[in-house]
């Protein structure tokens, strides 16, 4: 008999290592959670805020006195098309880059008026950015319990799930970028640069690891320097479609490729409106029907010597 190859031996070892894992059946829990989403989306749309679908959002809004019991809430189950269009706001998430975890953003429709701030924050801490390259830095079960803007200040209160208490010793890169994520999301939702005070589990956070976190003009720039705003992850687009976003690129030079697997189907470059700051860029792509990965990145002036270029990617489908 032949000796198994090294690869084969490794495969067997990995298989064996988890062969005794028999997970608990959890289809019912998943069903309950997805059913809740749809149900809640129903009345939430009715309350005038389109496409908000997380339990955490509901909590936050309920605290502001706009829950299902509010007298001015219209009937539940209003179809999406009949709701006044809501302006999308940036919700920030964390993605890994060549320079460590950085903030990216997705445009989400989260609500109107006083619902925008809690809605955006709740989406930021809930676990489901559309782009699988991104994540929320907060543990599952984190809830937004305060989201207010008054006297030139924004207050954000989070309750972390029971077993995850944040202590000064437990703060790592993930938590620090988590604070930045809250600050950027809160400021974008209020279209302000107001300082943000963070309250965790009822305790005001002033300093952690001697960094001033309570009143928080951010230190350094936690943002990735290339963002694709449109198309969104998973979007189905026409054969001629516009790509737009923000980039802080070397000499404002923004490059892009449309990939199918490893193959570059189309490529090009454009110029952002300004250099040396996050500035808008846009360009139009024409492509035959199919599924693609859209890659937008800056150029690498050091030719591979320095950090890898900033980049953002979206999986998109060009319709028939």
């Amino acid at each position: 008999m032949n000796q198994p190859t090294d690869n084969e031996r490794m495969r067997r070892m990995f298989d064996d290592a988890v062969s005794d894992v028999e997970p608990r059946h959890s289809l019912d829990q998943i069903r309950a959670r997805t059913a809740t989403r749809q149900h809640r989306r129903g009345w939430f749309l009715g309350a005038g805020a389109a496409a908000v679908a997380t339990a955490a959002t509901i909590t936050a809004v309920a605290l502001l006195g706009e829950g299902p019991g509010a007298t001015n809430a219209p009937e539940p189950g209003v179809a999406e098309g009949s709701v006044e269009p809501v302006e999308p706001v940036p919700v920030f998430y964390v993605g890994d880059t060549g320079q460590g975890p950085r903030l990216f953003r997705e445009l989400h429709r989260v609500g109107t008026g006083s619902g925008v701030l809690p809605g955006a924050l709740s989406q930021a801490v809930s676990a489901s950015p559309d782009d699988p390259d991104y994540r929320t830095p907060w543990p599952a079960g984190t809830e937004v319990v305060r989201a207010e803007r008054a006297d030139g200040r924004i207050v954000v209160g989070l309750d972390l799930p029971g077993d995850r208490r944040l202590t000064a010793a437990g703060v790592g890169a993930e938590e620090l970028i988590g604070f930045q994520q809250l600050v950027h999301t809160a400021q974008a939702a209020t279209k302000s640069a107001d300082p943000v005070r963070i309250v965790l589990d009822g305790q005001r956070v002033d300093t952690l690891l001697s960094l001033p976190l309570g009143e928080y003009p951010t230190q350094g720039d936690p943002r990735a320097q290339v963002w694709i705003d449109q198309p969104a992850e998973g979007e189905v687009v026409r054969s001629s479609f516009e790509v737009s976003g923000l980039a802080n690129a070397f000499e404002a030079n923004v490059q892009w490729e449309l990939m199918r697997g490893d193959q570059v189907v189309k490529s090009g470059f454009t110029t952002a409106e300004e250099c040396c700051t996050m500035a808008p860029y846009s360009f139009t792509v024409q492509a035959p029907p199919g599924s693609y990965t859209l890659v937008v990145h800056d150029s690498d002036p050091s030719d591979g010597e320095g950090f890898p270029p900033w980049r953002d990617t979206k999986e998109i489908t060009v319709e028939q």
Partner: peptide, 29 residues
């Protein structure tokens, strides 16, 4: 997930979350 995080209960949560997220974006998948 167990191979990555080692703990079965955590792995179950991770996978549940992934399914809930997949449900939410099935229209684009």
């Amino acid at each position: 997930s167990v191979l990555l995080v080692r703990d079965v209960e955590t792995a179950e949560e991770v996978v549940q979350d992934a399914f809930v997220a997949m449900h939410g974006r099935w229209r684009s998948l």
